[in-house]
Design a binder for these strands. Sequence first.
RNA 1: GCGGGUGUGAUGAAAUUGGUAGACAUGCUAGACUUAGGAUCUAGUGCUUCACGGCGUGGGGGUUCGAGUCCCUCCACCCGCACCA
Length: 951
Amino acid sequence: MKYDYSGLEVKWRQKWKDDKLYKVDVDTAKPKYYILDMFPYPSGAGLHVGHPLGYIASDIFSRYKRQKGFNVLHPMGFDAFGLPAEEYALATGIHPADSTAQNIERYKEQLDNIGFSFDWDREIRTCEPEYYKWTQWIFTLLYEHYYDLSADKAESISELRKRFSSSGTENISAFSSEDHHFDAKEWKAYSESEQEDVLSSYRLAFRKRGYVNWCAALGTVLANDQIKDGLSERGGHPVARKAMDQWCLRTTAYAERLLSGLEKIDWSSSLKTIQRNWIGKSSGARIFFQIDGHDDKLEIFTTRADTVFGATYMVVAPEHPLIDRIVTTEQKAAVKDYRSYVSLRSERDRMTDVKEVTGVFTGAYAKHPFTQKNIPIWIGEYVLMEYGTGAIMAVPSDDDRDHAFATKFELEIIEVVDKTGFPDASRTDKVGVLQNSDFLNGMSVKDAIKKMGEEITRQGFGEVKINYKMRDAGFSRQRYWGEPFPIVYKNGIAQTVDSDSLPVTLPVTDDFKPTTDGRSPLSRLTDWVKLDDEFTRETDTMPAVAGSSWYFLRFMDPNNPAAFASAEALDYWQDVDLYVGGAEHAVAHLLYARFWHKFLYDLDYLPTDEPFKRLINQGMIQGVIEFLPMIKDANDHITFVSYDLLTDEMSGHGKLAFIPVFIDYVSDYGSKNSFLSAEGLRSFLEWRPSYKSATFKTNNGHYENSQFLSNEEDFRFVTKSEVGKMSKRYFNVVNPDKVVSEYGADTFRIYEMFLGPIEQSKPWDTQGIEGVSKFVRKLWNLFFTDEKLDINDDEPTEAEFKVLHTAIKKVSEDIEKFSFNTAISAMMICVNELRRIKCNKREVLEPLLKLFAPFGPFTAEELWQLLGHKDSIHKSDYPIHDDKYLQQNSFDYPICINGKKRVMKSFAVDTPKGEIEKSALAMEEVQKWIADKNVVKVIVVPQRMVNIVVK
RNA sequence: GCGGGUGUGAUGAAAUUGGUAGACAUGCUAGACUUAGGAUCUAGUGCUUCACGGCGUGGGGGUUCGAGUCCCUCCACCCGCACCA
C-alpha cells in the first residue's frame, strides 16, 4: 500500500471530528492536565508558519499526556478585539465583526489541517458578548476594590467608605497614589465628588490624566510602535504627546506579590528576569526639596541618597505640573519652546537619543536640605513623568546622564565619592568612600545610603522608600473595536453598571472613524451614550489585553451563562499546568494575567494564586523583509533608489526611508541579489498607487513619469533584505497551507519540530523538509513488503528490543524536556536501524507507532487501524522503556594524551580503574606518545574517558 | 539608552551539563540499480597536509589533567520596552 497522506488526513480529520475524539470533561477519576497555547489574534493575513511552532509542541505534549493517562484540557480560542480589524474596516468599509468572524473561520480551517487535538466545543472569542460580559464583570470588581496592605489582599471599597466614616484614615493601611490624612468628621464634610476623588486614589480601576501619542492628522492615538522618528508610521504625520483622562488598573498595588510569586513557578530564568526588571523594584529614598520663594516642595526619588551633597541642580520632567507655578518671567518663553519641542518627541526617542543632551532652566531654585544652598531647577527630557516622581536631584559626579547634562550646561560638579581605591569602577558603580559630604565623609557608599536614610527621616526631609519602575496599566483606548466599559456617569461621577445589566454590548455602527478631538468613536453615538436620568456612558473601550487577561479561566467552563466559570470546574482544573507562547508576551500579557488572577484569588473566586505553573516560550519563526530605499526631496518628489546605488551621502540625509514591500513581488527574495523586475515594480505600483508618479533609479533601467525609460526586460531594482519578524506589516507572511498540501500535515508538524530547539528563533526555510518526509515514508514502509501489509508475530530478538527501548527512553525524556528535535532524531535512528535489520515484528512496531503518534497523528492512526485495532491510537497507552534491554557490557574508552584523543580501547564496564590505567599505559599506541616523557598523572573517569598527563 | 537572548561544518543543528566536538538531517561528491525519477540504495564529506600530524565551537584573555560548556573582556546579530497582538 502506498503512502497517501492527503487521503488519510481527510479521512481521519472527519472521523475524529465525528467521534469528538478530543472532547474533554471534568473526570475526577483521572489526574487533570491543562495545556494552553497563547490564543492568536485572527489577523487578515491568516495563520503563518510561525504560529504553529508552539501549537505543534503543545499538541505533541497533549497527546503524550493523554497516552500517559491524564485528562487533558487543551483548548483554543481567539483574541478577537484589536486595532488591525478596525484599520481594515476604515480602509475597506467591512465591519470588524464581519472581518473578524471571517478570519476566525480561516484560522480554524488552517489549524484543523495541521491535525491539532483541540476541544473545539470549548472555543471562545473575546469579542462575543457572552464572553466579554465577564471581562466587564471583573472590571467592575476591580473598580469596587482597593488593596489593603495590612491584609495584603484586595478588599471592597464599600468597606473602606465605612471605615472612613467611622475613623477617617486612622489605622488604615491601604495602597494609594496619594497621602491622605483626614478624620471621620472631615470625610463626612467632603462633597460627593471630593469623596470620589479620594476613593479613586485607592480603587484598583481608576481614572487618571495620562500622556498619549496623539496624531492630529490621523485623528488617533498611536502606540510607540507605530511611530518612526517622531512621525506616524502610516502617512508620516507629526505625532505629539497629549494629556488625556484614561482608565488605569492599579497593577502597582500588586507589584510585590507579582515579584514574589515568580519564586514558585516553573518559568525560564530569563523570563523571570525580564518580569523582575519590568517590575523594577528599587529601594531608595524620597526627599523633598523646598522651592525657593514658593510654598511648594519638589519631591524626588533616588536610590543614591548618599550623594545628596553632590546634588548641584534638579531636573524635572517637561510634563511636571509644578513647572507652570515656578517658572520665572524671563524663562517663560524658553520653557514654552522647550516643552513644545519635547511634546513632539516620543518616549522612545527621549530615552534613546543620548548623543544630544537637551534641557532648559526654569529660573527657579530649590533649597538644598542640608547646605541650604540654592540649586537651580532645570527641565530635561531625559526625566520621564511616569518614572518615580517625575523629578530628580542631579548628581553629575555619580550619574552619566547628569554628568553629560552638567557638562553641556556648565553646571557645578562636586565629586562626592572618592573611588581611588577602585580604579576600574565606572561613574555609577556603588563603591568608594564619601567625601565633600559633611557628616557622611569617610563612610562607604553602602553605609552612607543607610545613614542618609535615617537622617532625612529624622530631620523630616523625606523617608526611605521602595519604588517600582512598573507603572499602573493604562487601560483606556479611544477605539471602536473593544469591550465597552461597564461605567456610566452622572454629574461627572463614575459608577459601575449593575451586574445583571451586563454585558454592555458594543453598539453596531458603521461609523468607527476616529473623532477629531481624540475621543472614542463611540462618543458620536449619542443615542447609545445618553441614558435616562442624566446618565451618560463611558465611551472609551478596553485594550486587547483585557480579554486575554483571564481567558484561561473561561476555558475551564466556557459556556456557563451564570458565572465566569463554575466552582466545580475551577476546583477541578485549578490552573494551567503548561503554557506555551511567544516571548514577545513576556511582560504585558503575562503580567496582567497574573495580576487579574491574583485579584480574583483574593476575592476567593479561585483556588490558586498563580495562573501558569510552567511556561515555555517558543522562538519566533522569522521572515525575510524586503525594503525599497526611498528619498523625498524638498519639493516632496519621491525617488526610489536601487539599494546598490545608495550612497552614504543619501543615507546621511535624513530624508531616506525604507519602504517594506510585499515579498511576492520581489525576485529571489531573501538573497543578497533580491530585486524588483519590471513586472514586480508594476505589481508594487498597483498595490501602492500613491507611488505611481515616483521615480525609480537603478543601475539597470529607469522608471519615471509612470513609464519605463529603458528596456523593461533588463530592469532590475535591487532591494534591501533583512531577517525579521514575520508580520502583516512587513508583507512577508508565509502560509502553512502550501507546505501542508505539498508534504502532508504530519511531515509539516515533524519538520517544524525538527528545525531546532523550540525556544530558539530562526528564519523560515524549507531546506531539509525532504529528510523528514523521507523519514515518515520509511516508517510507513516498515509495515509493508511489496506494498502489502506484512507484520509478523514472532518474539523480537535482544537487538531489536534494544533498538526499540533506546528510542522509547530517549523520546519520552525529550518530550518531558520539550526537546522535540532530538526526540525526532532518536526516532529516525530507530527507524533506520529497524530497516537495516529488517524488523517487521508487531511487538516492536506497535510500541514504535505509539511513540510516533503524538508527532504524526494521521499516519500513526492509519497504520494502527491497518494493524487491526478498532480504537484510536490516540487513546492507547504510552510505552515504557525497560532498562534490562539497554544494559551494556563494555564501554569504548577514548584514551587521551594531555586531553587529546589518540586511540580507543574497549573495557568491560566493571573493570577497576587501576586496571584500565595499567592496560591503557601498556598500549603500543599510547607508548608511542609517552615514550620520552614523564607520566605526571592518569585520570580515569568510569564509562567516560581516560586522560594521561605527560610532561 | 535599558532589559533579555543568540553566535558550533556549505546549511538546520547535536553534545549525557566540565570528559571522544559535529549525532540526526539537508546539501555536495562518487558509484549502483533502472520501468531515466525531484525515486531508491551504497560510500564519502569540518579545515589543512602526499603523509606523520597540525588547526578547529564569533575575537582576545583566564581557571582546569581536560572548556562549545565556567570566569573576564570585546564584537556581531535578533527580541522586548507599556495604545501592534
